[in-house]
């Protein structure tokens, strides 16, 4: 069976590189499944879950916003950050959410601080979402 060569790059590191059966991407205009022989496509990605299917196993990554370049044999994902579901510590993520919510509630933040906190809240929520879904 044909495989796709998947590469996930963030500015800090190469998160994933390898052959996979299919990928599910959180596209800006809806989630999309990508199988080998997909037509060439460049798309924007939202922050969300990226599913990697290989040999009947599914690996789930929480990714930030970015871009994907798809050809018949390759998928290149460029994103701000990617965390493997296995590496997500739910407690840590939950604490991060709580901290962010407290900060937002206290209303003392302004401008860029507010934005940064909202962004980190969104990121942590995605991570927790990935973890919970996997468990249930």
């Amino acid at each position: 069976m044909a495989t796709l060569k998947l590469e996930i790059l963030t500015p800090d590191a190469k998160i994933f590189e390898g052959d996979v059966d299919s990928v599910l991407l959180p596209g800006a205009e809806g989630d999309m499944g990508v199988l080998p022989q997909h037509e060439a496509l460049i798309t924007q990605l939202n922050a969300g879950e990226l599913h990697i299917m290989h040999n009947g196993k599914t690996e789930i990554l929480a990714i930030g916003e970015g871009f994907a370049e798809i050809t018949a044999t390759t998928v290149n994902v460029l994103t701000d950050g990617a965390v493997n579901e296995k590496d997500i510590d739910e407690k840590v993520a939950e604490e991060a959410v709580k901290r962010a919510e407290d900060l937002l509630k206290s209303n003392t933040l302004e401008g860029e601080e507010l934005e940064a906190t909202q962004a980190s809240l969104a990121r942590s929520l995605v991570q927790i979402g990935v973890k919970r879904r996997r468990r249930s």
């Binding site: 596209g27 800006a28 205009e29 037509e39 060439a40 496509l41 460049i42 798309t43 924007q44 871009f67």
Partner: peptide, 18 residues
């Protein structure tokens, strides 16, 4: 060659801030 989602122009606009 490629298809784009959204259009190439819009996408480039999104890409530039990066």
């Amino acid at each position: 060659f490629h298809n784009f989602e959204p259009d190439a122009d819009v996408l480039l606009g999104k890409l530039l801030p990066y």
